[in-house]
């Protein structure tokens, strides 16, 4: 099965020149793309929940909440896109936790490469996941009768915003993935933290009918700020301050958690 001659021949190949940090990062991005090829079912996990939410809320609650399912969908769809991206970030944390448990990252860490490149690759995978999942939800929305008043430019801007949101939230779960050994714990903890954020927001309902204390929370909830901005971008009439408020959380998370990630990773 293995012979010394072929091994000696293998050794004669010259060492290539050290690749750049960018090249390292792109290789990890390629890994993320390969994962889509080999594990297409991961998309099923990503889009089934938001699809169920869209259908249930639109047809079961829509009439009661907004007068008609059609009107509710117009209100709800930008919010469900935010929810999709925020929940999806949990899965990349789980993926990281799985990788770390298997010793794969030990091999990456023992290679002479840019230390952060595996995370750059994770982010590439995340962004692809966000774009694919958001597109599927948008298409279903369009079929059901959703119409983005701001047109395709508005949709493009909204997708750019979704990537920023996903990027920022991604760090939370990368840090959790680094800290927690069991992938399912990452998921449980992630959803424990995300459910109140997502439900006590303006994604599903107008907070007008909520008690004061809850409304006060909903109005400063970063998920509400993101949803408001996304509604503005897709429906027209987004203001600069809405966009800036929506970006506060992703920017702050990146600024705090990217260095934390590096520190945790190198310390392990």
């Amino acid at each position: 099965m293995i012979d010394t001659t072929s091994l000696q021949r293998l050794q004669r190949v010259a060492r290539p020149r050290s690749p750049s940090a960018l090249s390292n990062a792109l290789v990890f991005g390629w890994r993320a793309v390969l994962k889509f090829k080999h594990v297409p079912e991961q998309l099923f996990d990503l889009v089934m929940t938001p699809i169920m939410f869209t259908l249930l809320f639109t047809f079961v609650f829509g009439g009661a909440l907004a007068g008609s399912p059609g009107e509710y969908l117009q209100f709800f769809l930008p919010g469900i896109l935010v929810q999709t991206v925020v929940f999806n970030a949990v899965y990349s944390g789980m993926g990281l936790s799985t990788d770390l448990g298997k010793g794969l990252f030990d091999r990456f860490r023992s290679l002479p490469i840019w230390s952060l490149s595996p995370f750059a690759g994770l982010m590439v995978g995340d962004i692809l996941r966000h774009l694919i999942a958001a597109s599927i939800i948008l298409i279903i929305g369009l079929i059901l009768g959703y119409r983005p008043e701001a047109g395709s430019l508005g949709v493009l801007a909204a997708f750019a915003m979704l990537i920023a949101i996903g990027f920022g939230m991604g760090w939370v779960f990368i840090v959790l993935g680094l800290l927690i050994r069991t992938p399912t714990t990452v998921m449980t903890l992630g959803f424990t933290f995300l459910f109140p954020l997502v439900f006590a927001s303006n994604i599903m309902v107008d907070p007008g009918t909520m008690p004061d204390w809850l409304r006060a929370f909903v109005e400063v909830n970063p998920v509400s700020l993101m949803t408001t901005a996304l509604r503005g971008l897709m429906g027209g009439g987004a203001t600069l301050s809405q966009v800036v408020f929506a970006l506060i959380a992703p920017v702050a998370l990146t600024a705090i958690l990217a260095p934390t990630t590096l520190w945790l990773y190198l310390r392990r």
Binding site: P19, S23, V27, L34, K35, D99, K102, L104
Partner: peptide, 23 residues
Amino acid sequence: QFASLDEDLTGRENLVLLARLWG
């Protein structure tokens, strides 16, 4: 001690990935 491979990828893809990381 534990196989440091990506189980989702093929054997060849694992090696190509690492070969690219080496340059």
